[in-house]
Computed example of a mutant assay.
Amino acid sequence: MTFKPLFSLALLAGITLAGCSKDNESDAQNTSKLEVRLMDAPGDFNRVSLDVQKIEVHLKEENDPNGWQLLPFTPQALNVLEYVNGRSALLVSTDFAPGDLKEIRLILGPNNTVTTRDGEVYTLKTPSGQTSGVKLKLDKATLRQGETFQLLLDFDVAKSIVERGNWKPGNDKKERFLLKPVIRLVAQEIAGGIYGTVTPAAALPQILAIRSSITPADTFSTAADASGAYRFQGIPSGTYRVEFFPTATAPANQQAYRTATATGIVVVNNQATSVPTVKLQ
Rank of each mutant, 00 (worst) to 15 (best):
Y83K: 15
D40Y: 00
Q233G: 02
F177E: 10
I190L: 15
S26A: 15
D100C: 04
I107R: 15
K168V: 05
P127Y: 09
I194V: 13
S132F: 01
S227T: 15
Q254K: 14
P42I: 07
T113C: 07
P205H: 12
G238T: 01
T142C: 07
H58F: 03
N112I: 05
R164F: 04
T277K: 15
P98H: 06
P205I: 05
L124M: 12
T126D: 01
E120S: 04
I15P: 02
E189V: 07
I190D: 03
V157K: 04
A187R: 02
A202C: 02
N63R: 09
K140H: 12
A77Y: 07
I104H: 09
P98R: 12
A224C: 06
T263R: 13
P200E: 10
G99Y: 07
D156Q: 09
T261G: 02
L185G: 10
G170W: 05
I183E: 07
G165N: 13
G67N: 07
V114D: 13
T74N: 12
L106E: 08
Q53E: 11
T261V: 14
T31L: 15
P110G: 00
G109T: 09
T142W: 08
N269T: 05
E147M: 08
T148Q: 13
K60V: 00
L59T: 13
S128C: 02
N270P: 00
F73W: 04
T261P: 02
P246C: 04
P181H: 06
M1S: 03
L71C: 03
G234I: 03
K22P: 01
G129C: 05
G228L: 06
Q255N: 05
F220H: 13
A187H: 05
T219N: 10
G67P: 04
N171L: 05
I265G: 11
L280I: 10
G264K: 12
V268G: 00
N63E: 14
L90R: 15
L204C: 10
Q53K: 14
E61W: 12
E61R: 10
G193N: 08
K4Q: 10
T115N: 02
L6S: 09
T199R: 15
K22L: 10
T261S: 12
D154N: 13
A13N: 14
D64M: 01
S274T: 12
M39V: 01
L208R: 15
L70E: 14
A10H: 05
S26Q: 13
Q145S: 10
L70G: 04
E175V: 01
V198Q: 13
F177H: 09
K180D: 02
A209C: 06
L101I: 10
T123A: 10
G234K: 04
Y240P: 02
S160M: 02
T222V: 03
F45H: 11
L136D: 01
S212V: 07
G234V: 01
Q145I: 07
F177Y: 15
P75A: 00
V157D: 01
V198I: 14
F177T: 03
L204S: 13
K174G: 11
L108G: 07
S227F: 12
L143Y: 06
F244V: 04
A260L: 03
Q150F: 00
A187I: 02
P75F: 01
D172R: 09
E82V: 00
D40P: 00
T74P: 00
Q130N: 02
